[in-house]
Design a protein around this nucleic acid. Structure first.
Length: 263
DNA sequence: AGTACCACCTGACGGC
DNA sequence: TGCCGTCAGGTGGTAC
């Protein structure tokens, strides 16, 4: 479930491993994960270039080729992650695309369920625009956040998860943010006044930043969070009420019914 | 603009 | 033991 915090962790992993290495060879084991680019194009355009810079936007990770605008695009779907390794015995279970590097290591894009995507972008801004991806959730200041949400309607959970509204929040962290904001996930955005939206923005920032600090690891986030307790029969770490699971906008939300009351 | 539903895909898990 | 249905989760397409 790679959402913004997970992808930020992947970025930092890349930055301290494969970044600045030069690609020697690209091997596409599963063409299905390629979106918008062919294996032939990857093999033709990537080798010989340095993985020179990285940029995360929402759930997307861009890896720049040399110091130009062209970049690999990695989207991790539900089960994707990166692995950098030198020896075959350290290879992950489902390497879909492998980048053999000049430092003797391999950078693999692993994705068990193949919902992830690998692409090649001419430049970041154009790519985001073409895919109608909104601003990164962590790049929004309070005013920007209010601007993006005001005038909309529909469940707040669904709205936070729309990548065109803002990028990076998925099923798990939308629940976490709303848990911290004491808002029921089915609350209509139109019912939230400006001060409530500002408060929600502060909760969102706090949750995303703290999750990154915890390496997006459910075992590392505070036990007072919802995240480690999303399972049948679990109780709210704040008040002891039995947690509820509810379908909202075709997704399952977890919430505490006692302090996330519906507005 | 928002909602609903389906499809994609694999592996884990519960029920019988 | 083993088969089968269900679920997880992000996104995109389509119809209303």
């Amino acid at each position: 479930m790679p959402e913004l915090p997970d992808v930020e962790v992947f970025k930092r992993y890349l930055d301290r491993t494969a970044l600045h290495a030069t690609v020697r060879e690209v091997t596409v084991h599963t063409p299905k994960v390629l979106h918008g680019v062919s294996a032939a194009t990857l093999r033709q355009r990537v080798p010989g270039h340095e993985l020179a810079w990285s940029r995360r936007h929402g759930k997307l990770l861009f890896v720049g080729l040399d110091h130009g605008p062209e970049a690999l695009v990695l989207h991790f779907g539900m089960t994707g992650f990166l692995k950098y390794y030198a020896s075959d015995e350290d290879a992950p279970d489902h390497p879909r695309v492998e980048f053999r590097l000049d430092d003797g290591h391999i950078l693999a894009f692993d994705c068990q369920r193949m919902f992830g995507e690998v692409d090649l972008a001419d430049d970041v801004e154009g790519y985001l625009q073409a895919r109608a991806i909104g601003p990164d959730a962590l790049s929004l200041d309070e005013d920007g956040f209010v601007d993006r949400l005001q005038g909309r309607r529909g469940a707040i959970k669904t709205t936070l998860m729309k990548q065109g509204v803002m990028a990076g929040i998925g099923n798990v962290y939308s629940d976490e943010i709303l848990f911290h904001a004491h808002l029921h996930p089915d609350t209509d955005v139109a019912f939230l006044d400006e001060s409530e939206l500002r408060k929600l923005h502060r909760r969102m920032r706090h949750v995303l930043e703290r999750a990154i600090e915890a390496k997006a690891d459910p075992g590392e986030v505070p036990r007072t969070w919802l995240l480690p307790h999303r399972r049948q029969g679990a109780t709210c770490p704040r008040c002891g009420a039995v947690l509820e699971r509810k379908k909202i906008g075709q997704r399952h939300a977890w919430l505490c019914p006692s302090h996330q009351s519906k507005k």
